[in-house]
Amino acid sequence: MINNKPPRDGYGEALLDLCRNDENILVLDADVAKSTRTIWVKEQFPNKFLDVGISEQDLIGISAGLASEGIVPFASTYGVFLSGRGFDQIRTTVCYDDLNVKLVGAHAGISVGPDGATHQALEDMALMSVLPNMTLIAPCDSNEAYSATMAMFKHKGPCYIRFGREAIPLFTNKEDDFQIGKAKVLKEGNDCTVFACGSMVHEALMAQEILEKEGISISVVNVHTIKPLDNETVLKFAKKTNCAVIAQEHQKIGGLCGVVSQYLAQTYPVPIEYVGVADTFGESGEPAELMKAYGLTKNDIVLAVKASISKKK
């Protein structure tokens, strides 16, 4: 039996461990500390926490200043506001000066649900993936969010991590090896490869089970780091299966879909199908209802795999 847990819990647990080790960090939030779990730091290590109020641009600027003086800031708020409202600050201050700022985009994807389109970050990965010096990570569950946070702390340079609000299946272990830029092969099959990140990784695993019963054998690769992309693994599996599906809880444009497609177009073109939001805004609804309505379920992956295989020469 698989338990469900929100990835932000893994983020909060990692922050607490960093505080316990008395690492040189400051956790910053912009008035959503309960949602991002940074409130745990506020409660247990108040001298490691700063709430800057409802001001995302200032959040990023202050974090940049802290980073330039050797303190590692974790700038946390909703991904939609962090990447959108703060884009110029992230570009021109954080990335241009290659500052060691950790940007944490919570409540990403359509599964944030009832709050509706204004709060559903469906463009953040596209925005962050075009920035020079940026590292972009989308962990697949709470344990991977923990490992990714620890890895981000050790990594020097701008990082953006994004995860959703909902409790999603917990199927990895905190002890699993996690390396930024090193994708994880979860299943190996010959007919097609699904490259997925974030919440879509578990959907891909479930799709694999369905397809297996139908006699279709697929590979599932968890590409938790979108940038820098694990070119080697992507190429290896493109060659192995000669077609692919890319799945992300995000617009189909940009993000993992963008970087994998671009890389394969240059190196080893294969048919690709996308599972993501089709160039539209979201709306209010229950998370599961929205994931279904916007084509982000295991069944959508199953259909995409079949479509991709059918295009193989």
Binding site: D58, G61, G65, A67, P73, T93
Partner: peptide, 15 residues
């Protein structure tokens, strides 16, 4: 890009 320096200065002064 105008308007960003004071936030950076706040971060530095705090650090």
């Amino acid at each position: 890009s105008l308007g960003q320096g004071l936030s950076i200065a706040v971060g530095k002064a705090l650090a």
